[in-house]
Design a protein around this nucleic acid. Structure first.
Length: 283
DNA sequence: ATGAGCCTTCGTCATAGATG
DNA sequence: CATCTATGACGAAGGCTCAT
C-alpha cells in the first residue's frame, strides 16, 4: 500500500469514502497514501487549496445514486499530486472512462519509497546517517489499534488471548525487575570487585561485567538469567507481533476483495438502471 | 554442480508508547 | 517515573530459482 496509488477501475482512489478511510487514517503516521477502494468523482476547484471528492460507494448506503450534498472536502497533504483525466462524468465503467488518480509520496532519504517522511527537527544534527534515518521513521500505530479501528478487534483479541499452554509465558513476565541503568563505562567499586563495563540492552536493562582480583571478567548469574528471560520474552513478542502483522495484512486483503466485489455489483446495478432509464426515455 | 541473487523467517537491539 | 510491551530495523541463515 505504500507509495503510488493508482485507480484503474477495480481499486484505489483518494480519501473520501469512510470505510477504508478508517484503515488509512489509523495508519496516520504515514502522510502519503489514502487508499480507498471505490470510484470517485473529483471536482478540482481552480484556486481553492482543497479538492472536492465524491465517492460512488458510501458507507452504510444501498444506493448507487448520490446527491451533490454528499460532496465532502478533502485536504491534500503537501507534496501530493492528483491527476484527473476525465473530471466530468459521474458514470464510470471499465471501458476507459475511469479517472486516473495518483498520489505521489515524498521520496525516502535512503532511496526507496518508505511512505514515511522526515519531520522537521528529526532531520537535523550531525549523527550517523543510520541513526538519522531511524529517527526519521515515525512510529505507526500498533496492529491492535488498527484492528480495533477496522472492527476486527474481536479476532485480534481472541487470538491474543491466553491459549491453553501459554500460561508459562505469561508467568515469566511477572515481577521481573532489572538492575538500574548505569552509564556505559562507569567504574564502580563493589567490595573488592570492580565494575568494568556496563552495556545497554534491549528493554532498558544493563549488563554489568565484573572482574575479580585476577583480572578475570564475569557476569553475575542473576544478570545473565535476567537477560535470558528478557530475550526469551522479546523473542515471543516478536513472533506475536509478526503474527499480528500477517493477520492485519490478511484483513486488508479481505477488505479489498469485498470492496472490489461491491464495486463490481454497483457498476452492474448502475448499468441496468441506466438501461432502464434509456428505455423509458425512448418510450 | 555451483555461485549469485532474491525472498522469507527468525533472533536481537533500540525505542516509542502504555501501564501501574 | 520506572518498568514493560509492541514493533521497526537489521543481520544471519536457509531455501529457491536461474544462468553458467
Amino acid at each position: 500500500m505504500d507509495g503510488l496509488v493508482e485507480e484503474n477501475g477495480t481499486s484505489g482512489a483518494a480519501g473520501s469514502s469512510d470505510s477504508m478511510a478508517n484503515a488509512s487514517s489509523s495508519a496516520a503516521a504515514a502522510p502519503h497514501v489514502v487508499a480507498v477502494t471505490s470510484i470517485v468523482q473529483l471536482t478540482l476547484p481552480t484556486q481553492a487549496p482543497s479538492a472536492q471528492v465524491q465517492s460512488v460507494i458510501q458507507p452504510n448506503q444501498q444506493s448507487v445514486i448520490q446527491t451533490a450534498s454528499n460532496i465532502q472536502p478533502v485536504q491534500l497533504p503537501k507534496g501530493n499530486v492528483i491527476l484527473v483525466s476525465k473530471p466530468n462524468s459521474v458514470i464510470h465503467t471499465t471501458q476507459g472512462t475511469l479517472q486516473t488518480l495518483q498520489i505521489k509520496p515524498e521520496p525516502n532519504p535512503l532511496g526507496g519509497v518508505q511512505g514515511q517522511s522526515c519531520s522537521d527537527d528529526s532531520c537535523s544534527d550531525d549523527e550517523s546517517p543510520k541513526r538519522k534515518y531511524r529517527e526519521m521513521l515515525t512510529r505507526r500505530p500498533s496492529y491492535r489499534k488498527i484492528l480495533n479501528d477496522l472492527g476486527g478487534a474481536e479476532i485480534a483479541e481472541n487470538r491474543m488471548g491466553c491459549k491453553p499452554g501459554c500460561e508459562n509465558e505469561v508467568s515469566l513476565s511477572s515481577s521481573l525487575s532489572f538492575a538500574p541503568v548505569i552509564p556505559a563505562g562507569a567504574l564502580q567499586t563493589d567490595g573488592g570487585l570492580h565494575t568494568l563495563a556496563v552495556s545497554g540492552t534491549a528493554g532498558g536493562g544493563a549488563i554489568v561485567q565484573y572482574a575479580n582480583q585476577d583480572g578475570q571478567f564475569y557476569v553475575p548469574e542473576d544478570q545473565t538469567r535476567k537477560r535470558e528471560l528478557r530475550l526469551l520474552k522479546n523473542r515471543e513478542a516478536a513472533r506475536e507481533c509478526r503474527r499480528k502483522k500477517k493477520e492485519y495484512i490478511k484483513c486488508l486483503e479481505n477488505r479489498v476483495a469485498v470492496l472490489e466485489n461491491q464495486n463490481k455489483a454497483l457498476i452492474e446495478e448502475l448499468k441496468s438502471l441506466k438501461e432502464l432509464y434509456c428505455q423509458q426515455k425512448t418510450e
